[in-house]
Nucleic acid binder design. Sequence first.
DNA 1: CGAGAAATCCCCCGAATGCGGGAGGCGCGG
DNA 2: CCGCGCCTCCCGCATTCGGGGGATTTCTCG
Lengths: 203, 203
Amino acid sequence: MRIVLVDDHRVVARSLKAFLESFDGLQVVGMAASGEELLEKLDEWQPEIIVQDLLLPGGIDGVETTRRVLRRQPGARVIVLTASTDEARMMGALRAGACGYVRKDAEPETLLAAVRAVARGKQFYDVPPVAGAEEDLTPREKEVLRRVALGRSNKEIADELGVADETVKTHVTHVLSKLMADNRAQAVVQALKRGLVSLDELE
Amino acid sequence: MRIVLVDDHRVVARSLKAFLESFDGLQVVGMAASGEELLEKLDEWQPEIIVQDLLLPGGIDGVETTRRVLRRQPGARVIVLTASTDEARMMGALRAGACGYVRKDAEPETLLAAVRAVARGKQFYDVPPVAGAEEDLTPREKEVLRRVALGRSNKEIADELGVADETVKTHVTHVLSKLMADNRAQAVVQALKRGLVSLDELE
DNA sequence: CGAGAAATCCCCCGAATGCGGGAGGCGCGG
DNA sequence: CCGCGCCTCCCGCATTCGGGGGATTTCTCG
């Protein structure tokens, strides 16, 4: 099994390598710290399985990385290995074509099982604890929410988006309602918890 | 070297074990997923070195874990291994007596170097990229900030703290100034980025 | 003792926020 | 075709925010 690890935490990546390679038949043929790096080396490595964190630095995030990898190598199998219970992002990865999902706080055997299941062409999902009602914000609402998290005022957001501030107020009201938040501060926290925006991308 | 790993991500912990034990003289004699678990097994394991994440589940966080461990085993050496560039929390751990600090996105050799340095009685700090002007909020200001992050209004905070809302306004103004934030939403983001509050503790 | 920080309270004031409602246009799928 | 969701805009209104000023007490530290 030719495996590639994608994790910006090099200590973690190298350790995963040691762990996985302690089992027969598993070989880590490459490690990347970002989506860009993975895409660069993809042809060279020709991995069968990609174990990938969702929280990656650089221009393309984990979900986008998965999407692009599978477009280039439809035969590859992507296992998402992530720390946070990041439902929105996880759903995104699955929709992007990942066929495995393991949380970092799972038993190591779980990851191993995932690798082996996926290698046999099966899917493997370390089931999330709760289904969780998918709060879907409209594209516009997400844009507004992102800017709210950046501390922008309604008027500033209106200027940036080229609309009237009444429009922004409407969007904000809808966002607050959907996130069950009483004000922008709570909306920001909720957005972060649900992975609608990430701390790292703010600034 | 008797090493104990503390990380709630079991996949990561087990992998670290594999990585560290691939070197002579290093032996992982125990792994814990929380501060409580570590404290329970401390007498049994008798570790010389403890490699510990700062973001731990359960009642006691990473900093508090370090503090308690060193109170019980002053001879033990604690290396903090953390993912986020979490300055406030890091400083807390150092003040609590940790003698090593390595970021998870460092080179694996860095962790190895840290273990070996610490084993020889030295300190090892994988220097943070920027010194970062330590914004020290007063205790009261931190209390207020936490509640701002919870989405409380000034009046609500005033009631909770049993003071007048003008007082809260003063504190909030000071916090905004110190965090260089223009409004509460930005203050929340800054607080999260600096580890003054953590996402997990918010509800 | 005196300096200074911390915490508390007070006033004024303009701007931003959040809520309620209404309303028109546009595109997509039944 | 007709409805429905999305985006857009508008009005009014009570509340909250954030900045400015100044004031007091308590406490620590040199």
